[in-house]
Amino acid sequence: METPHYAPHYVAARVQRVLAEDDRTNELGIRVDVRGEELFLRGQVSSDERRHQIEDVARETAPGLRVHNEIKLVEVREPGEEEHL
């Protein structure tokens, strides 16, 4: 297996694939970036539990990297103004 430190591009791709395919997450919309020994997670999910689950799966998939969880919670506001078509 590739050493994550030497192949950041592949590590990011692998984490993104696992986040989509792992039954604990099944998240397709999470952006993963690796810079040096830091891994950044960005995107939006609808609960704090999902946010943490994604971080856990990312840590497992890329051990040794420092994970920065920058995933935001989707804000579901009350309906606003209607649009006239």
């Binding site: 989707v74 579901v76 506001r77 009350e78 309906p79 606003g80 078509l85």
Partner: peptide, 15 residues
Amino acid sequence: ALPVIEHAYVVYCLN
């Protein structure tokens, strides 16, 4: 898509 509209739903009025 919910993350796009950021509201529980949007309303479109067909005139």
